[in-house]
Design a protein around this nucleic acid. Sequence first.
DNA 1: CTTTTGTGTTAAGTTGTTTGACATTATTCT
DNA 2: AGAATAATGTCAAACAACTTAACACAAAAG
Lengths: 407, 407
Amino acid sequence: MTTTFWQVPKSSVKNLNKHVALDLIRFSPMGISRIELSRELGLTRAAVTAIVSDLILAGLVRETNGGTSGGRRPIFLEVNPKGGLVVGVDIGATHVTLILADYLAQVIDEISAPLNILQGPEVCLAYVDSLMKSWLEKMGMDLPRIFSIAVGVPGPIVTDAGMVSGPPIMPGWDRFPIRQWLQNAWGCPISLGNDAEFGALGEWAYGAGRGEKNLAYIKVGTGIGAGLLMDGQIYRGSTGSAGEIGHITLEENGPACTCGNRGCLEALAGGRAIARKAIQAVRRGERTSLSEITPLDSITAREVIVAARKGDRLSQCLVQEAGYYLGTAIASMVNLFNPSMVVIGGGVAQVGDLLLDPVRKTVKERSLLVASQAVSITAAVLGRRSSGMGAVAQAISMSLHRVAESS
Amino acid sequence: MTTTFWQVPKSSVKNLNKHVALDLIRFSPMGISRIELSRELGLTRAAVTAIVSDLILAGLVRETNGGTSGGRRPIFLEVNPKGGLVVGVDIGATHVTLILADYLAQVIDEISAPLNILQGPEVCLAYVDSLMKSWLEKMGMDLPRIFSIAVGVPGPIVTDAGMVSGPPIMPGWDRFPIRQWLQNAWGCPISLGNDAEFGALGEWAYGAGRGEKNLAYIKVGTGIGAGLLMDGQIYRGSTGSAGEIGHITLEENGPACTCGNRGCLEALAGGRAIARKAIQAVRRGERTSLSEITPLDSITAREVIVAARKGDRLSQCLVQEAGYYLGTAIASMVNLFNPSMVVIGGGVAQVGDLLLDPVRKTVKERSLLVASQAVSITAAVLGRRSSGMGAVAQAISMSLHRVAESS
DNA sequence: CTTTTGTGTTAAGTTGTTTGACATTATTCT
DNA sequence: AGAATAATGTCAAACAACTTAACACAAAAG
């Protein structure tokens, strides 16, 4: 026996097994039979039959024909995609993405638009609201047909209040009642989350880290943040700011960071840092294809990444340097959190192994053998859509379990 | 609603509410009434009556008379200390401690003896075995009267196998079947754990961090390790090496560490590092009371701490320097893990605020405001006994829930 | 074509829990 | 002091989730 204390359930939940069964069905890509459910749940076949017939009656689950296994052909179960529709929203520093999907997380349509998060909550949310409504209208859809919406934003979340607290890269949003505002505008259940958390959820549910026990998702974009997942559960910490890897100090007297400190990871390897270093290098007169860009100050991380892909040496060096810093921070995280997988996503991660190789090398050097051997470091397979798909996963979760609870 | 996915239970547990009720009773210092239990559990009074009468019948719980509250005087419930006895064992790098306690974690007797962990598992375990047997005999006690024993060791644990894997400070123990060996010798259920994890458990259950939602315990002794607790559950990570804060790299080209790397926190702020720096300082001829110690090489961290307490300036500087390094690493952990409390224990932490003040200052400077405001950093109130009492807590847990399951 | 094997269903019994009435023991009001 | 009020604990009947055990079903093996 290796038991520790039993976890006290936060909110006492009714038909627990029904919910667990639902998630098992949800996250079995090929479908799952009743008998396999009974094994996973530790229940008898008879009990599973009853639970499943409940779920089918509620319209959440449907039967499909599955593969053989020696005896009677098992009936496979999957979530009924026709059960309903959800939207996942990913609000980033410079863009907003909306994804419409069914209960199987099959994307029906997707739209992306520029947005400047510095304009504050009223302007941004009103924009997202109008974007949502015109987009749905264009598809002949309307809000009442959407069962729930999850929204990811790049800041620490106070879950109960539905707002952000002390966000480094979205000043002006502090304590603004985001969820309440959206609930009034859209009238359906809204879940507010951190973009890196949703990225982790997306990759865990439908991407590179499917079903991993302990997953860390690192979002490397303008800012750098991490989402931590333990047994498919988002870990938020005591005030919702867990996973703020971007503001770990790496160099005591390093460059100033937006958070007010110096030498943070974000100030050394984030998108802004890469752009800044590129501009400085061009100013110094180094040979690079970036020098063709005018005005000089308009160079962004995106240009550096494109140039690196095309073989520009300076750009490659800058990316590798970022990978080295990233690896140092991730090594600390690997020692502390001991994840089974680290998924790296966000805009900067689009370069692939050019960034990942130095990360892997540094993590191997700088973290304990037991931990570094157990972790695999990969790029996000959902690419720019990790957070959006995580929001979709969260929205589906809300819808399904809400219906399952009241039936 | 802020629901995420539901956690799939690892081992399907029968009477879950009974176990939760037992722990609620266990960790209510003043006792708890049936009606309060019903509120916490989300059950009716009638159901609680049934559960409690089961627990009383099994001899695990007893009634005491509690305080008034307006109406009928509630009957308070507490764990029945006469239910049984357990032993908590804390194997450190240089010492082993055994604690005999009842089910209320009241210490009946305690013994501590020197031990050199480098002598390997056979020698050390045989020694601990003989120590246990002679100690119990001296008290007129014998092993069959002990219900369960928990043992903490300073290395990463493979829980299922009951052994350590790749331990930095206990070479020779790798893959040795510790739990099996002890089970053969003692014949009762054995739980093997990491010493820092048990320290966290001890402080959470009976010490500075009672009932904290997210607790980190940092053990600063010969080595440095952390135990992470989330809702009273030990977090072990994917291979049991979570919380290895001692081997975070702080200085790229710092001093060599036992783990094979350079510039680890442990190599900068651990007991060995403090001793080494003290010896170097004396060699350089700095004025300090430590220079009276002969031979020079026999100076240990313990002497430095004693000298610092007595006002020796050099020793104080060394401790503060360690505090600064410790604070840097803890700041990273606070950003990632966002704990509600950090408890600092272990031998070096005995100096108190001389170490804690620089830690607090550095954490405040180097971690995000939201996270650093939410965390309080304190010294272990159980002192050297944190890990031992955590082992006791774990052993009690095993006993109680084992009986509760089969009744 | 029967047997074997794995899968799903049905009906009766068991268990943990709720419901609603009642008993118990304190404080507060008249 | 005696009655009203309030909080706590218990009991018996009803209910819901699950198990047990027998049976029905569909494909592969003999």
